[in-house]
């Protein structure tokens, strides 16, 4: 369904800016905020899942092999995953 991201005019603002559709945060791509991106080195990864748990955007996903990667539509580049990954499998690299 095509949906506007936000009201165009003040008259369209719902009382109290209330939102009635669930799950609409998916439409807001926080990935545009990113200055650095996390890059995973699966050779060092022990599959502990800490990056998955700590990501404040909940955008770290597990693949079929049990390794992890960020959904870059939402990863805002905060670096928490890299900071928390104690085997040092995640490196933050500058966005080009």
């Amino acid at each position: 369904m095509a949906q506007k991201k936000w009201p165009e005019t003040w008259q369209e603002v719902t009382p109290g800016c209330m939102i009635f559709e669930g799950g609409n945060s998916r439409e807001y791509h926080t990935g545009s905020w990113r200055a650095q991106r996390p890059v995973w080195d699966n050779a060092k990864c022990i599959k502990c899942g800490i990056c998955y748990i700590f990501c404040p955007e909940a955008c770290v996903k597990e693949d079929a092999q049990g390794y992890f990667a960020a959904d870059l539509d939402y990863c805002k580049g905060c670096g928490i995953c890299a900071h928390e990954c104690w085997p040092g499998a995640i490196t933050m690299v500058e966005e080009g």
């Binding site: 936000w6 009201p7 003040w10 008259q11 603002v13 009382p15 109290g16 800016c17 209330m18 009635f20």
Partner: peptide
Amino acid sequence: HPVTMGALGMPDIFTEATKARDQA
């Protein structure tokens, strides 16, 4: 009946939200 109250209002909506509040 899920509803979100008190969501974030970023610069692209804050002016409109404030105008709506004042008008109310």
